[in-house]
Design a protein around this nucleic acid. Structure first.
Length: 360
DNA sequence: AATTCGGGGCT
DNA sequence: AGCCCAGAATT
């Protein structure tokens, strides 16, 4: 990999800009109390949470997670459901199980220390090329590249790159560019964080602040006025509509809950008994599936949007001697719950004291 | 190479 | 309504 003069210049400009703005940057706010010593375990946890998740949404979750599992040993010894429960609201819940498994592997195979080599890091469940590079560079100072959505946007604009960032060619190109820059940098961690931070705060998807950009003189997209049209948008996943009928059954001050299957959406998480279908779920269907019901009335409906689904929730209140696990409000709030099911359960069980969905 | 996995924020 | 987000694993 050649290291041209322009690469050194870009790396220097990004690192300098990052240093000058460090105090004001959102991520540094996280980093300051998230991993002040750039503790590798802290970086592992925060980077796992940050996968496809914006910094602002991670901060509170990160705090409570680290309070519960301060060290990799604590996490390795933790109860699986406890780990998943502390992930509630963050989405992509398989990350929680993988992080848990990674902690166990670190204890068993890496002597309780997060490895610093990318090759070793890639052996950890849930750790891919990005996360491995982030830990290696940020926590260990290794000159390892990273490419996330921010870096891809910065690099595509800097070079007026028309290739799709998702395509094999685009990906190869991005990683080679990122590698050239990190090798030209004095501090790999600062360079990588600087590239991401630049993308998050200056080189934004819409309305980039090119006039304040430390790379404006080198940026081909800016020179051509093409900053708004690069990078080219990725293919959109198609969404399908599904219907969930959730039935709230109370017994004294408790609600009936069930655990979801260990695959698919919200794997292993808890919910009010729910019937899923491609078509609206009829009352007759509910009665058929839950014959013990003696009454059934619709409470409300709402829609829950995810990347691949539009879920039409209909919530019912039912009564009858339905067997299963009944939990109090304080108990179900400690269960692993999707935001949708948190909303369902909040409709009756101690709704006034439940945290709002937005605050979770 | 395409899909699956959440959920929210911002146009 | 569409797009993206400090991605990874599976098919």
């Amino acid at each position: 990999m050649s290291m041209s003069r322009s690469e050194r210049s870009v790396a220097r400009n990004v690192s300098t800009w990052f240093g000058e703005h460090a105090r004001d940057l959102p991520w540094r706010t996280v980093a300051a109390h998230a991993h002040p010593r750039r503790d590798p375990y802290a970086v592992l946890v925060s980077e796992a949470m940050l996968q496809q998740t914006q910094v602002a949404r991670v901060i509170d979750k990160y705090e409570s997670f680290m309070a519960a599992f301060p060290t990799v040993n604590d996490l390795a010894d933790a109860d699986e459901q406890h780990v998943l429960a502390l992930w509630s609201g963050l989405g992509y819940y398989r990350r929680a199980g993988r992080l848990h498994a990674a902690a166990k592997m670190i204890v068993q195979r890496f002597d309780g220390r997060v490895p610093g080599d990318v090759a070793d890091l890639l052996k950890l469940p849930g750790v891919g090329r990005y996360t491995a590079g982030a830990i290696a560079s940020i926590a260990f100072g290794r000159a390892e590249p990273i490419v996330d959505g921010n870096v891809a946007r910065v690099l595509c604009r800097l070079h007026a790159q028309d290739a799709l960032p998702d395509s094999p060619d685009g990906r190869r190109w991005l990683w080679s560019q990122a590698e050239a820059l990190v090798r030209a940098a004095d501090d790999p961690g600062d360079l990588n964080e600087g590239l991401m931070e630049l993308g998050a705060t200056v080189c934004t998807r819409v309305g980039p602040a090119c006039r304040q950009c430390p790379l404006k003189r080198a940026c081909l997209a800016c020179a051509a006025g093409r900053q708004e049209e690069l990078p080219r948008p990725r293919r959109r996943a198609r969404q399908r509509t599904v219907h969930h009928a959730s039935i709230i059954i109370e017994r004294a001050d408790r609600i009936l809950v069930e655990q979801r299957a260990d695959d698919g959406m919200w794997a292993g998480m808890w919910q009010a008994p729910t019937i899923e279908s491609d078509r609206p779920v009829s009352l007759r269907r509910i009665r058929h599936e839950m014959p013990a019901l003696t009454s059934l009335e619709r409470i409300t409906s709402f829609r829950h949007i995810t990347t691949h689904r539009r879920i039409m929730f209909t919530v019912y209140r039912g009564s009858g001697n339905v067997p299963g696990r009944y939990v109090t409000p304080s108990q179900w709030r400690r269960l692993p719950l999707s935001n949708a099911q948190h909303r369902v359960l909040s409709l009756v069980g101690g709704a006034c004291t439940a945290p709002s969905v937005a605050a979770r």
